[in-house]
């Protein structure tokens, strides 16, 4: 029973847009901060984090790509070039 109480809100949460907001805003803001503005990792981490943080995230410095996850949702943001900056690829 206790397990249901824990799982049910998570399932309800996963079905709405809220979980998408977290990885999406984080990945987009972090990507632009790092690759467009050129700030440090520490600064960008502080800059991109909202009240709720992604459950996991990774930066591929070679591909200039950020992937962030929250619960079942994942966002991938790519730095295209200096003129066009970062763009959400999938969410």
């Amino acid at each position: 029973m206790k397990l249901y109480i824990l799982i049910l809100p998570l399932l309800l949460l996963s079905s709405c847009d809220f979980p998408k907001v977290i990885p999406s805003t984080f990945a987009k803001d972090y990507c632009s901060c790092r690759f467009v503005v050129g700030q440090s990792k520490d600064y960008c981490l502080m800059y991109a984090k909202q009240i709720v943080s992604p459950t996991s995230w990774s930066e591929d410095a070679n591909k200039k790509e950020i992937v962030a996850k929250f619960l079942t949702k994942k966002t991938r943001v790519k730095f295209l070039n200096q003129k066009f900056g970062c763009q959400i690829q999938e969410n």
Partner: peptide, 10 residues
């Protein structure tokens, strides 16, 4: 605006 920039309509 959040929906447009980040969620479903980017």
């Amino acid at each position: 605006v959040i929906d447009m920039l980040f969620i479903n309509n980017y």
